[in-house]
């Protein structure tokens, strides 16, 4: 005999699977266009309105971007059908890893996240600033 609570939990789990599958099949995420300079600046202006990017770089696949604002690096990277932003000291960009696809920069704090930037192998990282 299954305890009622476990039965209820099991049924709930079944409905969760059903709803997630429905959401996947329906294919109704937000439209998420690739980033360009203007889109990245808009995104960063929303999240870091006091920072003024002097220069921005867009990852090769348009799914991430980097901006320099004084000694601060501002990063936006895609998550699902949205973007997540982070700010960090420019010098922290040196802790990123090179991968065959580009650059990976993990964020180990409570908010977490992993910025993946499609970045040409021959291009310097961090990018050179004027």
């Amino acid at each position: 005999m299954v305890p009622p609570f476990l039965l209820q939990l099991g049924i709930s789990a079944g409905f969760i699977v059903l709803m997630v599958v429905l959401a996947a099949v329906a294919k109704i995420p937000r439209a998420t266009p690739s980033l360009d300079d203007a889109a990245l600046r808009r995104l960063l202006a929303d999240d870091f309105p006091e920072q003024v990017p002097e220069q921005v770089w867009i990852a090769g696949d348009g799914k991430a971007g980097l901006a320099a604002a004084g000694k601060t690096a501002l990063i936006a990277f895609r998550l699902g059908d949205g973007y997540v932003t982070r700010d960090l000291p420019w010098s922290d960009l040196f802790r990123a890893h090179r991968t065959p696809d580009g650059i990976q920069l993990p964020f180990n704090g409570p908010g977490g996240g992993l910025a993946r930037l499609a970045w040409p192998g021959e291009a310097p990282w961090p990018p050179e600033r004027p």
Partner: peptide, 10 residues
């Protein structure tokens, strides 16, 4: 500051 992943525990 939005979360960086979909991890339920996070």
């Amino acid at each position: 500051r939005n979360l960086g992943d979909f991890n339920v525990l996070r």
